[in-house]
Amino acid sequence: MTAPIPFTVIGGFLGAGKTTLLNRLLRGAEGRRFAVLVNDFGALDIDGRLVAAHGGDTVALANGCLCCTIGDSLVTTLLGLLERPDRFDHIVVEASGVADPGRVADLAVLEPRLSRDGVIVVVDAAEVRARAADRRVGDTIQRQLKAADLLLLNKTDLANDLPALQVWLGTQSDAPVLEARHADVPLDLLFGLDRHGATAASPSSDTFASWSYTWPEPVDRDVLLAMLREAPGEVLRAKGIVRFADAPDRRSVVHLVGRRLEVGDEGPWGDTAESRLVILGLKPVLGSLQRE
């Protein structure tokens, strides 16, 4: 069986910046084939010169990515996508502005061909508090924030009082917060590492970086998982292929998105030399992790 395809859900209310983020993703895919399921690809900013094929509900891009319109049923659109002969490296779904993105991500748990990667909720820094207090949509917004593995706090340039907003977000959600303008964030922070494990080129910028660990000997499960669970808020993602001391003949996959930590099993350990874990996060904290 081929490895399951990582499945990411982008949630957030109308106007938060989901489409802007998806445009960045499609432009910055760099060799990875994303299938992106959106509510309206007319809203995407797809350069006509990059369109390889247009098939009604789908647009195939020259860089190997595919956009599909969700239409009336995400379930049938997703199943249709999985039946296609082409393989994708990552599937990203744009949840509707009123959907609970956590429920959408459940699909990846039900579908063996998918692995749940993360729920990213895009938040409009200028609007979110008013929306969350709205009589009719407030509870919807609150459910979205609660469902997030990572919050992308967008339009921070438009926020009145950013520190107060950060405090308030902390009361709504346990997810780490990544600040952005125009949804401009390093894509690897959101869409992670190569699906085959921690082998991708490490991304870096002024504000974030990656740190890679290797262990030649089997690793103590409790120690590693505790380290990840207790990692500071600036740690946004981690992925590793690990040989645990209590299961030395198994290839365990450790996966952290925001505060959601999962350990899976990918079969026998085989002849891989060492355990390897890559952490992505904001810079100052990685400095302290390095010291540990």
Binding site: L14, S96, G97, V98, A99, D100, R136, V137, D139, T140
Partner: peptide
């Protein structure tokens, strides 16, 4: 039971 869900919310 908590309030239900929107399929199409007020703005849409």
């Amino acid at each position: 039971t908590p309030n239900g869900v929107w399929n199409v919310g007020p703005d849409d």
